[in-house]
């Protein structure tokens, strides 16, 4: 599948995977992040259930320094 993460297209061998699996794949385990899938926030409690698939648009954000 091809999905868009933070505006970049990414290809995966799997046809679908859970958000948790994706986080592991992206080396983001343990990082404080929030995720939006196709414009909708995915609550952390649902990272195991929500699946990403072909064409999905994801935003993965964190807190950074700012004024």
């Amino acid at each position: 599948m091809q999905i868009s993460i933070n505006g970049n297209d990414k290809n995966f061998d799997a046809e679908t995977m859970s958000i948790n699996a994706l986080i592991a794949h992206m080396n983001l385990v343990g990082k404080r992040i929030a995720i939006e899938r196709n414009g909708e926030i995915v609550p952390r409690s649902q990272f195991d259930q929500v699946m990403v698939c072909q064409g999905d648009q994801l935003e993965i954000v964190g807190a950074v320094g700012g004024g």
Binding site: N8, N27, I33, V61, G62, V64
Partner: peptide, 20 residues
């Protein structure tokens, strides 16, 4: 303290320190 919300670095230095 104020913080900004920005796209996380993907596939870059995974040990990069974080503000938190």
């Amino acid at each position: 303290v104020t913080v900004a919300i920005r796209r996380t670095n993907i596939g870059q230095n995974e040990n990069e320190p974080s503000l938190l």
